[in-house]
Computed example of a mutant assay.
Amino acid sequence: MSKTIKIASWNVNSVRARLGIVERLLREEKPDVLCLQETKVTDDIFPADLFRKQGYVHRVLRGQKMHHGVAILSRVELRDSGSHDWQDNGEARHVGVRLPCGLRLENVYVPAGGDIPDRTVNPKFGQKLDFIERMTRWSDGLREPTLIVGDFNVAPLECDVWSHKALLDVVSHTPIEVDALSRLQQAHGWVDIGRRFVPAPERNFTWWSYRSPDHTKNDRGRRLDHMWVSPGASERVLAHRVLEPCRSWERPSDHVPLICEIAI
């Protein structure tokens, strides 16, 4: 019996459009649990058969037609599923479960926030900040060991983007978003697993725009995807990887998967 559980997280940018590379990820990495964001499909037509054939017989879905959507697929039993409406408008952006090892697993897709970093002229930016604030209040009251994963749509550190100076006014790296995410992290003492295993200022991107035909040439990446764990459970995290080669797979997502291994 394995003494660890392997958990993958991936903003797949439409699960039906990426079925080939999702199957490849499952075949090559064999995670015990896969958390997907931006599935862009309602629950009734989610491609569950592909996952079932690969041994992922447990699933918790929260889908939405054409937009957003989150899912947790698993080889191990999932219990106590639930969802928070941190967007406060019914959008499908969060789902959570309890794993057999006792750890709570939360899968979240934070809104991108539009193009203008000013809530007075861009309501989407305000919605993003409010979403993070609701997560902060939830984190402040959290009393159980938890792993939260997903697309946070914020690159918090200067070294989490290809150019701190160039992106200071670009949504995902503005000071107001970074401050909001910092308050969220402090509310529970969350441990940033990505930077625990790849300390700053080492390069550690998870997203590259589709606007660049070859993302490797200019490497204008950002670290938008994260895995955070409760401080009391941080020593149980034994490994963490960013699967950057997936960005070059056929018909890729603009995000790449993250994987962590946790002691049971």
Rank of each mutant, 00 (worst) to 15 (best):
3 K>L: 13
7 I>Y: 04
7 I>N: 03
9 S>P: 07
18 R>C: 07
41 V>G: 00
45 I>Q: 11
47 P>T: 08
51 F>Q: 03
52 R>V: 13
55 G>Y: 07
65 K>V: 10
66 M>I: 12
70 V>G: 05
71 A>T: 07
74 S>P: 07
74 S>K: 05
76 V>F: 03
77 E>D: 12
82 G>V: 02
85 D>A: 09
86 W>T: 05
95 V>Y: 04
101 C>W: 06
113 G>P: 06
118 D>E: 11
119 R>K: 15
120 T>D: 15
123 P>G: 06
123 P>W: 08
125 F>H: 11
129 L>Y: 06
133 E>S: 14
139 S>W: 02
140 D>V: 11
152 F>V: 07
152 F>N: 01
156 P>H: 00
159 C>N: 11
163 S>A: 07
169 D>C: 10
169 D>R: 14
173 H>L: 01
180 A>F: 08
182 S>E: 15
184 L>K: 02
187 A>G: 04
188 H>I: 01
193 I>H: 04
199 P>C: 05
201 P>V: 05
201 P>I: 06
202 E>R: 14
204 N>V: 01
217 K>M: 12
236 R>E: 12
237 V>T: 09
238 L>K: 15
238 L>F: 06
251 R>M: 12
252 P>Q: 08
254 D>V: 04
254 D>P: 03
254 D>M: 05
257 P>L: 06
260 C>F: 13
260 C>H: 07
